[in-house]
Design a protein around this nucleic acid. Structure first.
Lengths: 144, 144
DNA sequence: TGAACACCCTGTAGCCGCTACAGGGTCAAG
DNA sequence: CTTGACCCTGTAGCGGCTACAGGGTGTTCA
């Protein structure tokens, strides 16, 4: 299986596949006589695994940690749980700040309907007020 | 006001301030005889504005668009609304995918309590199943 | 006087996870 | 024998910083 076929099969760009190899996530494949990479089913499986983890927004470093378990199946799986827990923690923290962000932007947006000059624009005025540290609709309490 | 004082006053790293200058967000300040940057109150205000917008997760390019309005206060503010609307759109889209992500990770996490070997770990098994494209707890419907 | 230290300067390289070249080689079809 | 699709390596770019290296400046204290 050449790199293009692997890419086709997994939906991954060939440049990305080479990048994963360079980064040590995907083991170096054998080469054909002409120097082309020759992949087997194990590469396909591993690449699919990587992509699924990426879809869960894990870092390549964390994926590396998970991949290591395939090489030592007798190891305690505590570290696997830890990777997932940490990821979940990050996602939840990010979710929290995104929700706050949406609130702030929604409030900000409500300060202007189009048709003013920039000088009169409530949005800009709010942003400037916020920059001054005054209480503003979009940052009502202390800016943490 | 020297760069360190400006940084202190705004809570912005001096390297970041210089970076904003290089990027054209912060106008070049005057220089003291010794070559040190000399900032005035307008720089302080502008930098605070930038940081507040960054706290709203706007890109530097979008902040640039907003800053341009200070130089032409008579312009129609339609573009300001557009920047905020686009940002709100991005935040909402991201929120949606983060919520899905949290669900997937939570479900994944429920597949293993610690104390197994890696081989038996439900999480790893689920991830491999997912990589195979089989229906899995964390990717139940079609992987889009 | 001079040594230590905090601050400032420029320029460059690194982080992440790709993406996009440039400049070449390989191979099958027309 | 030329076109075109594929492959190779190596390098540079994205955004938004962050972290040096290698130097200059200015104050304080012995």
């Amino acid at each position: 299986m050449r790199i293009g076929e692997l890419g086709e099969a997994t939906g991954v760009d060939v440049e990305t596949i080479r990048y994963y190899e360079r980064s040590g996530l995907l083991p170096e494949p054998q080469r054909q006589a002409n120097g082309y990479r020759a992949y087997g089913p194990l590469h396909l499986e591993r690449l699919s695994f990587i992509r699924h983890c990426r879809a869960l927004d894990m870092s390549l470093a964390d994926i590396q940690r998970l991949l290591a378990f395939f090489d030592r199946p007798q190891a305690d799986c505590g570290d696997i749980n830890r990777v997932i827990d940490e990821q979940l923690e990050r996602v939840r923290a990010r979710l929290k700040s995104m929700r706050a962000l949406e609130k702030q932007l929604t409030s900000l947006r409500s300060h202007c309907e189009a048709g003013h000059t920039a000088k009169e624009c409530g949005i800009l005025q709010e942003l400037v007020a916020a920059a001054h540290g005054e209480a503003c609709a979009c940052h009502p309490a202390a800016a943490q």
